[in-house]
């Protein structure tokens, strides 16, 4: 079982990066995650119940499908590897909810399912992550997304100081007829409980991520 999970973690890290950094926090901790990109706007608020699990609300407006997902999400930390100078994680998440039509087509509501795996490895200087996400939205379509991310910190900052990262994220969208591959360049600013990422994708569309730990 352990070998299987390790293989899955490595696979996720190789093929894809985490659109959601650290979906499990410390017990009794709340986290807010916001993301805006060309494809969707999403929000995830979660509460960590124990060192391995968090539960929360997932909201996502899919611009292409013109649909809004509202659902409950469970995140699980399958495995963490703590080393003196690094940390690696392997996560899984699943959300179930309702997808509602935001267009004038009157498509009604559908049951929605979101599932994914993500893995990351980071030191205070380097960062690599991968994620695979899958959306089942009935008449609103099915989507699979693979992301990979590489990051480097131009300087190493101590506790409470402003941490800055330069990151490059790649995307693979196998269900699209064109533009299957994409990339996003990001700058991450990280200070205390707040993490802000500003970026632009290869089409010039802005990307905004914000994470806050409470």
């Amino acid at each position: 079982m352990f070998r299987k999970l390790t293989s899955l973690a490595l696979l996720a890290a190789l093929i894809a990066p985490a659109s959601q950094a650290r979906p499990v926090s410390y017990p009794e901790g709340w986290t807010l995650m916001l993301r805006h990109d060309a494809e969707a706007n999403s929000a995830h608020v979660h509460y960590t119940t124990d060192p391995r699990h968090s539960i929360g609300l997932r909201l996502r407006y899919d611009r292409e499908a013109e649909a809004f997902f509202t659902g409950a999400q469970i995140n699980r930390l399958f495995k963490r590897w703590n080393e003196v100078d690094s940390q690696a994680n392997f996560y899984g998440h699943i959300a179930v909810g309702q997808v509602s039509d935001q267009s004038a087509l009157g498509r009604g509501d559908e049951l929605g399912l979101y599932a994914g795996l993500s893995a990351d490895w980071e030191t205070r200087r380097y960062f690599i992550s991968g994620a695979i996400d899958h959306w089942e939205q009935g008449d609103f379509g099915t989507k699979t997304r693979l992301h990979n991310r590489l990051g480097v910190a131009p300087y190493v900052a101590n506790t409470g100081a402003l941490h800055t990262w330069f990151m490059l994220e790649s995307h693979y969208r196998p269900d699209r007829d064109e533009d299957k591959f994409g990339a996003t360049a990001l700058v991450r600013f990280f200070k205390g409980p707040g993490l802000l990422e500003l970026g632009v994708d290869n089409d010039g569309a802005p990307v905004l991520n914000y994470i806050h730990r409470f």
């Binding site: 650290r22 926090s25 410390y26 017990p27 009794e28 901790g29 963490r80 703590n82 080393e83 003196v84 690094s86 940390q87 980071e122 030191t123 205070r124 506790t159 409470g160 941490h163 990280f190 200070k191 205390g192 409980p193 993490l195 730990r213």
Partner: peptide, 26 residues
């Protein structure tokens, strides 16, 4: 082991400060 960012600091500070024996952490 495993300390790589400020989220780690927050996790440790918040966890320890819930213990009645602890007055302050850094």
């Amino acid at each position: 082991k495993g300390l790589v960012c400020d989220f780690c600091s927050i996790a440790l500070n918040k966890t320890f400060k819930k213990d009645k024996a602890v007055a302050a952490t850094y």
